[in-house]
Write a protein that binds this DNA or RNA. Structure first.
Lengths: 620, 620
DNA sequence: TGTCTTGGCACCTAAGTGAAAACT
DNA sequence: CAAGTTTTCACTTAGGTGCCAAGA
């Protein structure tokens, strides 16, 4: 089962023992380690990793840097950071605000990676794909389907700005994607991820072993999906509890916390309706609470039990303000861990109480096992489908706690991972895995057209692709040496503003390896990635039966990943079980974007040109 | 004369006509350019550059990216940005504050590069070297020598975080080094540049054609020195006029401008002594004005002519606050151009008036030609050596206006550039150029020891060097495609905080190509780099007679660029006219730094180990 | 009308400034 | 003490928050 379609067939260059058997001491001396407080296990782990790294045999002296195609030893495992916070959001139905100017995600999408080959270079990516073909609406305090999805926005793949870097660098600290921003501006020129409001999305994380962005399209994508990061894009928060959760946990929203200091009157002036002078402001004219009092009058609850608590209580728990790094330090995580335990939970409890799970959590039931397993009932609509105020047994939401009764262990999942999967039912030939229909491409109609094109009629050349296929990117490469930069990048972030930095914040538009089904996995291993598989994307060239490029991938290749006002007329079809044909034929389009003076010097639009192209993708 | 020691002998791989003669149209369509306001010439230049780029013949289709060793066509020219502002500072004796936490330079060190090969990849670097062997003190409003220099801090080479990038990317916008920070903390772990307070320094800019940081040590360094960027490092400003210049021009110091709004009382509460109630605060006890009233009582002047001007006057001139990018946009440059013209100049005129040049400038004498020519009287001490208040004829400072009476045009300088130079008199064999002794290494005593080592006794292997020679670096690589990232990086900076960006901000410790003499050049070409030469650094391997590694370079290679409490016992000697021997033999040292809990995970100290090593550098 | 979107706003974090006091 | 250094502070820029009124 441990079938490594790509790694194994490359291992013939270097025999494995040649790398691993030598006990040749490292040229580096292991120093007397600086004093490390033993209580911080995360840091210990980092230390250990670095030491292991140092105890590896030194590379044979070669003038050239590592050849990327050499055999490398990796078995990546990915852990989602802020997992409990994500789950907390997910229980309520996570919402992410999208704005024209771009909005970060919160909670932050941040993963910890292990099992990489320390010396090999990797590119780490992230994208966000639609979960289903539905448009949602928030009505009566719950999300319901409100019709078919709007035309999908062009997919954009965000390459982590540190890419490519060596495995040891990626593993040295959590990998944050806070530079990825969400927008609803279809003309966005910043490389932000364009989403449709009121649609459901699933972030994905990809690991690609490659030392150059150029090689991305020909490389194996390992894709990891954490379903608790699923969310609905909104232009304004719909669920008040989500709002409160954001306020309580996002340091930048600290101004909206009611600390009891009288600092801020908080949201919706109706807060005062219960306590003090509620009639001063005639605000109830603008919004009518309607039948659902829990929706627009939550402030009763806000001011109710909390106001009686000591004023400084909350601040001490939530976070002590001054020294907190709002996005990527451990302090945030610690803060987050406490944030749900106290006053705010009470508020949520007393407010719209459809999600009785909060109560149960409050009652001491640990919900850590309730984490977002995918099963064949996917997509689920956050379990809000039932009648309002229906109490879920023991605080467990339908479709969430009931983890797939799979017998697969995590290791088994890994095995399945490696075997690879198909991305689309129409492409499926012999997928040996459970296919989650909901994670399949959103426009199956496009795939129904059969257009067998036995030969490559107009195959773009590599140089062509180089110039246009991966535009928008400014990717910092890895540091060639591994040791000291770890603290420069993470701990030192407070001093060097790369966060701003640098570096770099240059999002990137690229073809995603389209949807693959999620694997169910054990809920008993909360610290590991539960969904883990390889999605392979190798256009132009050949594809193994397990490696089929996604529709979106091909579409992006052909359209240069530029936003289309309408879906492009691209057809993907399959002839036989191994041949795949992609035909893109669409009309010249007008430029979607004009360059305002501020963005002078941007030439994205050059890439936006009419094209009739047929591409034949032949699997091997 | 146009001798290209490195470029020429590599041109046999690709014949030059093969690249240049083809008129093959680009695969990229030149778009209808977005509306560009014609009044902004800088942007026009950018557009033009981008268009030229696009009109070049497309590369022949190759699967691999450009081979870095292929023939490339470059003749780099470098222009200092904010040159007038730099000159203004330089006239007064630029000071740069150094702090433990690291301080940026102001004015910003930013250059515009042209003449690179568009497709070749370059690494751009910067370092700061001592100008002389003196320690300075500011006494009686002037800088004077106060003894021999303190032990030199370890040199650190700052690699621009965008490195490596293609020439077209570097040329598309000015290259800023605002991430480089200055510190006096010898234990700095951020990679900041460590300087000695009260010492004089010279920033340098380097261009290296290389597509990988690994190749840096074997590559040709082109080094550019703008003497107006010379400065003295201080922990607190000494010259009040420098302070005022900083306040007037640095947006972050805007809070210290006396806008007449009564917004800020400004420096030294003694301001009030003249105007209102001066006796309310008993502050004069802390500082005694002393004999030099102009030093501690400048506020008389502050409040004198300016307070009578309209309150909003200054704000309109200096900069309109809200939309200003404080570090790298054109608005800053525009703001800067005005900043010296008005009220502040009056203050400077009325305050300590040793520098009569301000008056002359105010009187309409254009000092643009007075820019910092190096000549053989270097080092000069900013011309403050004479008696105080001695009026310099026509506002011209001694040692500054008198530009080298050289007959070399800029082109001639280029010719000299290419021929290469030696870095040190003891290494000089047949240097065909003017050698500026002041720009030579600071510790000539170390070079006097002769230790001829005919053979390589303990040559570090490449892998060894890879692991330790270039630590501290986290270098973003270039984007593989050239078009759309320009606006993402520059114009889009206001949206994606790479400035923070990101990226990155990861300074870097590396061996500098040590000092080379400066070329005098014409002062009539203010927009070009006046000093321009090639400094070659190729350790381990061979060196042409024009390519000799610097002392500092070798020292860094052998000591891993880590701070030494005392100068390392490294000896550089020459046997014959072509062989160079470097011997490094020093004792085990204790770790300078311990890792506080915050910097856990940093392993710089691993690199810091005892070593006895001899390295033979043989020129060919 | 009702739902969703937009832009301005107050409030926050993060970091770059010189002043001034405290420290060495 | 004197000269130089460090720390703290108020002020700045830049940008990340949700709120809210107005708009679509």
């Amino acid at each position: 089962m441990a079938y490594h379609p790509f790694q194994v067939h490359k291992s013939d260059k270097f025999s494995l023992p040649a790398f691993n058997s030598s006990a040749q001491p490292s040229l580096l001396h292991v120093p007397i380690l600086p004093e490390v407080s033993a209580e911080q296990s995360a840091c210990d782990a980092r230390l250990r990793a670095a030491l292991e790294l140092r105890n590896r045999p030194a590379n044979p002296p070669r003038l050239k840097s590592l050849q990327p195609e050499e055999w490398v030893d990796d078995e990546p495992k990915v852990t989602l950071e802020f997992k409990d916070l994500w789950s907390e959001f997910h229980k309520m139905g996570t919402e992410m605000v999208i704005t024209k100017t771009g909005r970060r995600m919160f909670p932050p999408f941040k993963v910890r990676v292990t099992g990489l080959d320390e010396r090999a270079k990797y590119i780490l990516l992230m994208d966000i794909v639609t979960v289903d073909d539905c448009r949602y609406k928030f009505h009566n305090s719950r999300w319901t389907v409100a019709g078919k999805a709007d035309p999908e926005m062009p997919k954009r793949m965000y390459i982590h700005p540190d890419s490519p870097s060596k495995g040891e660098e990626w593993m040295s600290k959590p990998v944050a994607f806070h530079k990825l921003k969400l927008t609803n501006n279809i003309s966005d020129k910043h490389g932000f991820t364009i989403l449709n409001s009121m649609h459901k999305y699933q972030p994905r994380f990809h690991i690609v072993r490659a030392n150059d962005i150029m090689k991305l399209p020909y490389s194996t994508f390992r894709t990891y999906v954490f379903q608790e990061t699923e969310f609905i894009a909104v232009t304004a928060y719909q669920n008040e509890k989500i709002t409160q959760l954001k306020i309580d946990n996002n340091p930048f929203a600290k101004g909206f916390r009611d600390t009891g200091n009288g600092r801020r009157e908080k949201r919706s002036k109706q807060d005062l309706s219960e306590g003090d002078q509620d009639c001063c402001d005639s605000d109830d004219s603008s919004e009518q609470p309607g039948t659902n009092e829990s929706f627009y009058s939550p402030l009763e609850l806000v001011s109710s039990p909390l106001m009686s608590t000591p004023t400084c209580h909350d601040d001490n728990i939530i976070g002590s303000d001054s020294d907190a790094d709002p996005q990527d330090d451990d302090a945030f995580e610690a803060r987050t861990a406490h944030s749900l335990t106290l006053r705010k939970k009470e508020r949520l409890q007393n407010s719209s109480d459809f999600f009785e799970s909060n109560n149960s959590n409050q009652n001491g039931i640990e919900e850590k096992t309730v984490h977002c397993m995918l099963d064949d009932r996917y997509p689920m609509d956050f379990g809000y489908s039932a009648n309002q105020r229906s109490k879920i047994k023991d605080g467990i939401l339908p479709g969430m706690l009931r983890s797939q009764p799979s017998t697969l262990s995590d290791d088994c999942c890994q095995t399945f991972d490696i075997s690879g999967v198909y991305h689309h039912p129409s492409c499926r030939v012999e997928a040996p895995v459970l296919v989650q229909p909901a994670l399949l491409p959103m426009k199956p109609s496009l795939f129904s057209t059969v257009d067998v094109e036995p030969r490559i009629s107009s195959l773009p050349r590599i140089s062509d692709f180089e110039n246009r296929g991966f535009s928008h990117c400014r990717i910092p490469s890895s540091a060639p040496f591994h040791l000291p930069q770890h603290n420069l990048a993470s701990q030192g972030a407070s001093l060097s503003p790369l966060g701003g930095m640098v570096p770099y914040p240059y999002p990137y538009t690229a073809p995603p390896a389209e949807i693959a089904p999620a694997f169910p996995s054990r809920s008993t291993t909360p610290s590991h990635s539960r969904i883990h598989r390889h999605v392979v994307a190798q256009p132009w060239l050949r594809f193994s039966p397990y490696q089929i490029p996604s529709f979106s991938f091909c579409q992006n290749l052909l359209t240069n990943q530029l936003p289309a006002r309408s879906p492009s007329q691209l057809e993907l079809s399959k002839s036989g079980s191994r041949d795949l044909s992609v035909t893109c034929s669409y009309e010249p389009r007008t430029l979607l974007r004009t360059c305002p003076p501020k963005t002078r010097g941007s030439f994205d639009d050059v890439l936006y040109r009419s094209k009739v192209m047929k591409l034949h993708l032949k699997s091997t």
